[in-house]
Design a protein around this nucleic acid. Structure first.
Lengths: 344, 344
DNA sequence: CTGTTAGCGCCTTCAA
DNA sequence: TTGAAGGCGCTAACAG
């Protein structure tokens, strides 16, 4: 049997209220009672139960991060680490913990239903989903990251489409015409309706914008590869692409830096030089992108800041405020992994 | 006002129990009542409160990971990402969430005190600490990762000392005599008593074992650099070390891969070639270590598996089992970042 | 199959 | 400064 506030009260010959005060508002009781109560609490090893406490205070001290995939998969993407660091920074300011919430039995709504947190951050969730509906019912303030800004959903994001277009324009400007796009496949865990990836769709639209203008038909002239968002995913895609007999693309446009990393590995394993034999680009600009050889040409987006701002405004909401959407800047970072195609 | 089980019960003309059954054990009530109850719940937007539920079920569905530092700092080390992926895999099997718990006001005990979780994993906490004491009082099962196995604390770890010795022996075998060790500095957030780093101490002991045998005095002949465990920390240490006038060390032995990554950056910025001008070694063998150029010589330890096993056994404990300590294997991974010193 | 009655452990009015 | 009583929202016996 755990020892409770009642035990301490009895042993100290005071009421539960007094014990509660001792722990929460020591100023309200005399030093003598305080000492006596705390002394006994120490002896008996009493620690107030955080859950019971939450039931009345309505604060559990944690903000939830709703993941579209199981934790191991999700954490393979260093971009998420950036996001989490930013969220962690905001948590630090408010002494909050960060609860990472994976789908339950493949269902993200179910996870949202049972999450014991004060506020929630979602990744890539659209406004139409049942998650939004649920969170509203629960009265848990939430903010979407890389979602879709609407009246009903507060969002922190970037203009993925414009950023993707800029990147593709740069690639085209280099002279590339045989292009491969390494696209992110949807998580397999969610229900079909929730499964569309807003980010992927927006980036594809941006690519298409640039391609269209250059007179290139995405469906016909561009080689598409679907892959998991991880080093291994990129590596596999790289091998698949490089193993083909057809004329090799001159550039691999990866939808995420981490995928490009895997691509690097595949290239090395096959003796393909970057960028001499093949140009590679990424998206995100995580710290490793500048460490690899050659440094990766990519689109920088402020992952840390996105996480920080998202957490900050969801906490602001929790406190009764009404912050607005946030759109952040991106920047094309040209390094040496992408060059003009050979024979130009 | 939130809507509660009571509202549903009244509206449906049944007792709270029935509503509870509808949500938890639908088999125990008739289909008709079930439909009626759920219909009303749907209309009114009722979602059972996870916290209230926890008060009686004694299960909140989350396992806590107690961090010795604020989240942003801690997450700068990719080794932690590995650990978390493993923990996440175990969470997945049990439909648990993972609550990352940073120190509260610089105090890790305080964080442990208020964490609303079913079980706890700690990183690098010794058995003597107040944390262990507290967790025992709270009756929260816990397992230490990279801690110290004792009767009172279940631990999952490796033999850091032996691994470090093996690494240093390898370095010495290569012929290096001017050695620099890039050591991890303690987190600054914790109270002095909690601040010692078991891992760092064990690895230093291992280095010393090897050095002693080679007749090298660690205090006198080895250059020590303290640094934060991050890319930036390694980069800073690298610049400090390389900026000196004295004869440059021929090898930099980093206590963590991520520090070595930063060292790579510093070397590149100064035009120092690895390993021609300077050998570099790491510790952990995270995925990026084999992607960088040159691939990093390091000690592999199974981060993912450690996380997985730690979470698995703490959950086993939660379920009433009595698992034992786990010691995992390490392996020296010799790649090309370390070679014989120039002029050998 | 359904309802009644008790708590779970704590905080918080309101009085004293 | 302290105490008594009530309630937070839910589940868990135990009846019926």
């Amino acid at each position: 049997m755990r020892i409770t506030i009642k035990d301490i009260a009895e042993r100290a010959g005071v009421s539960k209220t007094t014990v509660s005060f001792a722990f929460n508002e020591p100023g309200k009781i005399s030093k003598e009672t305080y000492d006596r109560v705390m002394g006994i609490a120490g002896e008996l090893g009493y620690v107030p139960d955080p859950v019971a406490r939450t039931l009345t205070t309505k604060r559990i001290g944690a903000i939830g991060l709703l993941l579209p995939q199981p934790i191991p998969e999700a954490l393979r993407n260093p971009y998420l680490h950036e996001l989490m660091q930013g969220i962690g920074a905001a948590c630090h300011e408010h002494d909050f913990a960060l609860t990472v919430i994976p789908p339950v039995k493949g269902r993200i709504v179910e996870a949202a239903r049972r999450a014991a947190v004060d506020a929630i951050l979602t990744i890539g969730v659209g406004p139409g989903g049942s998650i939004v509906d649920l969170l509203q019912k629960r009265h848990v303030p939430f903010v979407t990251i890389d979602g879709k800004p609407t009246d009903a959903t507060l969002n922190v994001g970037i203009d993925d489409r414009a950023a993707a277009r800029t990147l593709m324009e740069f690639v085209l400007g280099l002279g590339h015409r045989r292009i491969a796009i390494i696209e992110l496949q949807s998580e397999t865990v969610n229900e079909p309706e929730e499964r569309s990836s807003l980010v992927r769709d927006a980036r594809m639209a941006g690519f298409r914008d640039a391609l269209d203008r250059a007179g290139i038909d995405l469906e016909r002239d561009v080689r598409m590869h679907l892959t998991e968002c991880s080093i291994e995913g990129g590596r596999t895609a790289g091998h698949e692409l490089l193993a083909r007999d057809e004329p090799r693309p001159t550039v691999a446009v990866c939808m995420s830096d981490v995928v490009a990393f895997g691509f690097y590995a595949a290239c090395r394993e096959r003796g393909i030089r970057i960028p001499e034999d093949l140009s590679v680009t990424g998206f995100d600009d995580v710290p490793y992108s500048s460490l690899l050889s050659p440094p990766l040409t990519t689109v920088r987006q402020p992952g840390y800041l996105k996480g920080y701002e998202a957490a900050r405004i969801v906490l602001e909401r929790l406190a009764g405020g009404s912050p607005g959407h946030i759109v952040m800047e991106t920047e094309l970072v040209t390094r040496t992994s992408a060059a003009a195609p050979a024979g130009t």
